[in-house]
């Protein structure tokens, strides 16, 4: 039997127009356990997941305009897992009818040669940090509760210092462009986490 021609499969592709819907907030360390407890109750009943990631933020400076920013992540707890490269577009926060920040998003899984390769492309590492925490899921929604630490000696993830006495809480959904109804579900879910944490649509530009 002759196999079907390979050319029927997409030659190049990937998810062209994926958007990330995002709500952010923070919780003080004292209240962290209660929040985790609440999330365990609200989210899908799967084994609790923890993670420890090292994120490097790379910039590519052109002759004009804004530098191009890419985030490269690797797992510290699973050093043989692939690297995760992420591009995030300009956030759209103006639209009042949408309850979440929306931004274009490209996720790429990559081999361990990623830092060398980005350097060759002209990218330079701007800053790095370590994020440790918990991941929860509810359907397509994802809740990440993470503690961020500054890396004191470049490249050395053993030697870190906590950024603050609170944890970052992020509620996000990845969906194709135009599926604004997901932001309704996100708001409804965020309501259930009050008053432990107030998840909001935060404009990153106002904080730089």
């Amino acid at each position: 039997m002759e196999a079907p021609p390979v050319t029927v499969m997409p030659v190049t592709g990937g998810a062209i127009n994926m958007m990330e819907y995002l709500l952010q907030g923070s919780v003080l360390d004292q209240a962290l356990d209660s929040l985790l407890h609440r999330l365990r109750g609200l989210c899908d009943n799967i084994e609790p997941e923890t993670f420890a990631d090292h994120e490097l933020v790379y910039l590519l400076k052109g002759q004009q305009g804004q530098p191009f920013l890419l985030r490269a992540r690797r797992s510290l707890s699973h050093p043989t897992a692939p690297w995760h490269l992420r591009y995030l577009g300009q956030p759209e926060v103006g639209d009042k009818s949408r309850h979440a920040l929306v931004r274009n998003c490209v996720d790429v899984a990559a081999s361990h040669s990623l830092p060398d390769f980005l350097n060759e492309m002209g990218f330079r590492m701007d800053h790095e940090f370590v994020a440790k925490g918990h991941v929860f899921r509810k359907g397509t929604m994802k809740v990440v509760v993470s503690k961020l630490s500054r890396v004191l000696v470049p490249g050395n993830t053993e030697n870190t210092e906590q950024l603050s006495l609170s944890s970052l809480v992020e509620l996000s959904v990845l969906a194709p462009a135009g599926q604004d109804t997901v932001s309704e579900d996100m708001r409804a879910f965020a309501e259930q986490l009050k008053p432990l944490v107030h998840l909001e649509k935060i404009d990153p530009k106002k904080h730089t």
Binding site: P10, T12, G13, G14, A15, I16, L60, F68, L85, Y87, G89, V106, D107, V108, A109, A110, S111, S113, L114, D116, F117, E120
Partner: peptide
């Protein structure tokens, strides 16, 4: 250097 990635790398090249 060489890099192996998934096909979303093509999308990234469009952004770049």
């Amino acid at each position: 250097p060489y890099l192996t990635a998934d096909v979303n790398f093509d999308v990234l090249m469009l952004k770049l």
